[in-house]
Design a protein around this nucleic acid. Structure first.
Lengths: 194, 194, 194, 194
DNA sequence: TATGAATGAGTCTTCATTCAT
DNA sequence: GATGAATGAAGACTCATTCAT
């Protein structure tokens, strides 16, 4: 089915999801409100409850939308590279792009927050957990492939360790007065992989 | 001054802080509302704004109360031990108790959530950051002391790495269907320290 | 469109505006509160914010409603008169009716207060100023027409002077123990026009 | 009794009155609140209800304080002048200073608002009327003296007319987008007195 | 004589959700 | 299928006033 022939309903649904995803990125879970989503999408307020039986549904869809998109971008970048860089530093940057988003290159806490708000938000939003799990698995696969194609031997456990190192570094950097979570994660990765 | 002679005002203030801390632990930041705190404390609604000029003030106080209490308990335990265990495993458990709370021994996500919600919540609640920084520093000192007294040579950077490893392990474990964040962190620490 | 076929929403909106206008007349700006308006209109509290995005919006609507109605009545009266009275006294009364409202004929401060609370209230309620300006201009036109059709030569500046005289007389009469603002204004107009 | 020997209670009372007068000038009647007054005066909140049985009492005192001070300043200026200016323009400026306050020389609506908020506020605050009446009478006397000593023959009715002209001009100027109430009043006075 | 403590009532505004059309 | 209309419940916060000390 081409984009042009996407049924109107589906297109509107997508517009709402995209709007919710934007708001989620900008203001966290709290910012995703019926009103705000509808306004951002340029659709009637009631469309939010028409297409999604509850706000949680909408949030789920937004999280999934965002995450899949991030993964797709990551995978696309990977596919574009005929040959993967073999320098440790280049692999590290790739890993950081994947885990923290390319937005994290600019520094600051905000571009990085998404992943961690979702992870930490999951226990209180059980409907998010399965989704996060699935997306996490795909992310792991992607990262595993990177290491493999880069010629770096890394066991699954070792990979989980490296991911944890990045996530822990970030989470701790978040409270710095001038946070540079990506820098913190980079330092730790280098120390472990160097 | 004994508890019995604590001025009434101070006692009420503490009751509100305790109620807010409970709610925070049970339901996250969202759960800390004027109404909820007042009801939990058995005090009139207006007392919440009488003792705290804003909800953020109250939340700050609750976070500080909780964190200082955790730290105090940790430090007390440390002081009780004339001699620190020299086994790696014992040190690991001590570290996990300190970082995740002794409640984490029972497993499950909830008892562990507090630390991570506060860390990840700080960027969107700038008033928390200084407090979190201060408490973080004290926690680091405590951990450094543990390693020192246990005869394990650990540099400051290495310590930060270990903390990151724990935090990253936890954050990733949070989305498991049967989450055991402490177990995950333990495994990683063992792999690094073993 | 007849009254009967006025859409329900518009009718409710009007009910709120009317309620607000009543309260404004009875108790000044301070009396226009969400609760009071809703109760007066016999509608739910939330309807006030549903139809008006803020209380200022509602107040604006009420002021506009009242003023336009006054203007309309004035203009209607003017149109009914095939021929305008040529006696100075009759013109004066017409002018007073227009500026102070026909309610001012009964004496007392209250029926006259509206115009002056709005004028004096505008600097602290900037959202009112444009509206007041527009209504003021229409009022001037109406008064100019009266003088013209009555055969009394009155320049624009002279008209503004007469209006000021009335307003000043009223404002000063407001503090009398037995205020007769209309009478005070009448005396001054007679002295100037006689 | 010298200032130094003023009993503490009286001094505090005066501090509250002065604080209330300031707030009244800055923000109108609405701005005079127990809390705000106490803070401005640097006194405990409860002192406001201790020294004044109600907020209206405090407002009355503030209005009286302000008005008497204005009058005193006006009279002092008059007494300083051995000989009064005989030019019409100079008399006009003197009159405007007295009616609108010297602050009105700078232009803008705010410095002028005080007199008109008090006049228009009186009908809804009956406790203000006697005070305003008394002050008004003194103001008239002062203005009468000015005209007399300037050699300008002005009957009592004529004086009231001129005052009304000023007040009316001001009240109408208040809604201009770039209000110059003093200028408007000046123009009208010149046209009548020229 | 003062005042810290306290609070019931009320302020404006937001929001998720329902429902009639 | 779609949505304008509607609202009860709750949100944070303010305030005049009372009262015990």
């Amino acid at each position: 089915m081409t984009a042009a022939s996407t049924p109107k309903g589906e297109r509107r649904r997508q517009a709402l999801v995209a709007a919710a995803a934007q708001l989620l990125a900008e203001g966290g879970f709290e910012a995703v409100r019926h009103r705000a989503v509808a306004e951002r999408a340029g659709l009637p307020l009631a469309s939010t409850t028409y297409y999604f039986s509850s706000l949680n549904d909408l949030i789920s869809a937004a999280v999934e939308h965002e995450s899949r998109q991030e993964l797709a971008i990551g995978r696309a970048r990977l596919n574009e590279l005929a040959e993967l860089p073999r320098s440790t530093d280049a692999v590290i940057e790739l890993m950081l792009d994947l885990l923290l988003g390319t937005g994290s290159r600019d520094g600051g806490a905000e571009p990085v927050l998404l992943r961690y708000e979702r992870l930490v938000g999951s226990p209180r939003r059980p409907y998010l957990a399965p989704l996060m799990r699935e997306l996490g698995a795909e992310l792991h696969d992607l990262l595993a492939e990177i290491f493999a194609r880069s010629g770096m031997e890394v066991s699954r456990d070792r990979l989980l360790e490296l991911i944890a190192l990045v996530d822990g570094a970030v989470v701790n950097a978040l409270i710095e007065s001038d946070p540079d979570p990506r820098g913190a994660a980079r330092r730790m990765l280098r120390s472990q992989l160097g």
